[in-house]
């Protein structure tokens, strides 16, 4: 199998779109069901996220007057393409993509693209609510990216290489634990979950930055969010969970670890109320900054 084919398979089938979309829907359903059960409700049926996306695919797209048609429709496509490509780089067992030097940097860049797409979607929509959401998302991304990037870069520092497989093969140690905690600090904000669901605060600004989107473009944004959830949980599992020599066991361990992380994050989301933007920003630059500093220090004194 030559390189082009392996990239195509990785993006389209495993671990890309064909695998990540159902897993993303499963994880979204798990989160919604858990929230419902914790609130004493029954919660949505198993296929609910799938039905939501299929229904949106069958709806009409309303493009607001005065909005550039090209960029309005391109943003969700770019968002889905970027998260899928990012997931294709993650060295899950059986991933056909060859490991490249520096793919950690590529991965981190690709993971920023959906955030940029959300910010742009808010600004191009000409809706005042969308613009507020975009502003909040942009400011929040300056906050949560400090611990998020430091967690990954600290692991690269320990591994001595910006290569995903090298990160995976680092012998387990204290830095793993510290970096995992730092990563988990950033996770709720990256997933736009409750204490940091400031950019998609439906009670304050009606919806998130895709307030003006409808129909298939909105479905693509939902799909992009589902794949992003898979990407974040599997990235956590791949980097911070010790690997066994058996790929199949690894796969099961990674999936279970992803579900467990999601459960913890959802528990946090149901038990907390939304912070204000300044509070979230201060939290990430004080406590996230402290965790980042400790993690980086641990990589040096090791």
């Amino acid at each position: 199998m030559n390189a082009v084919w392996s990239y195509l398979v990785a993006i389209a089938v495993w671990p890309g779109l064909l695998f990540a979309a159902p897993l993303g829907w499963l994880e979204l359903w798990f989160m919604r069901k858990l929230v419902a059960r914790l609130q004493g409700r029954q919660g949505p049926p198993f296929f609910q996220p799938f039905f939501d996306v299929m229904k949106l695919l069958g709806k009409e797209t309303v493009i607001p007057r005065g909005v550039s048609r090209g960029i309005f429709l391109a943003l969700p496509l770019v968002s889905v393409a970027a998260v899928t490509a990012a997931l294709a780089i993650v060295p899950l067992p059986g991933n056909p993509v060859p490991s490249l030097p520096g793919d950690v940097v590529l991965l981190l860049y690709l993971m920023e693209v959906p955030v940029l797409c959300e910010v742009l979607a808010g600004y191009v929509s000409r809706s005042i609510y969308g613009q507020v959401a975009a502003m909040r998302e942009a400011i929040l991304s300056l906050a949560y990216n400090l611990p998020f990037l430091v967690a990954i870069i600290a692991m690269a520092q320990v591994a001595g290489s910006f290569q995903m497989r090298a990160l995976q093969e680092v012998p387990y140690g204290l830095v793993h634990l510290l970096a995992a905690v730092t990563f988990l600090l950033a996770l709720p904000a990256r997933m736009k979950l409750n204490p940091f669901s400031i950019a998609n605060a439906e009670h304050e600004i009606i919806a998130d930055s895709h307030i003006e989107y409808s129909g298939p473009p909105l479905a693509l944004f939902k799909l992009s969010h589902a794949i992003e959830v898979v990407l974040l949980t599997e990235l956590f599992a791949v980097v911070f969970i010790p690997a066994t020599p058996w790929p199949l066991v690894n796969l099961v361990v990674y999936l279970v670890a992803g579900i467990l992380v999601l459960g913890g994050v959802t528990l946090l989301a149901t038990t907390t109320a939304r912070l204000r933007l300044t509070q979230a920003f201060r939290f990430y630059w004080v406590w996230g900054g402290l965790a980042s500093a400790i993690t980086m220090a641990a990589t040096l004194v090791r």
């Binding site: 919604r32 419902a36 409700r41 029954q42 949505p44 049926p45 609910q48 919806a207 989107y213 909105l218």
Partner: peptide
């Protein structure tokens, strides 16, 4: 709310008519 729980039917309340 927990008593009627419309999410069982897939019902979601959205603020914007576009959704």
């Amino acid at each position: 709310s927990p008593r009627y729980d419309a999410e069982q039917l897939g019902i979601e309340l959205h603020g914007t008519p576009k959704h």
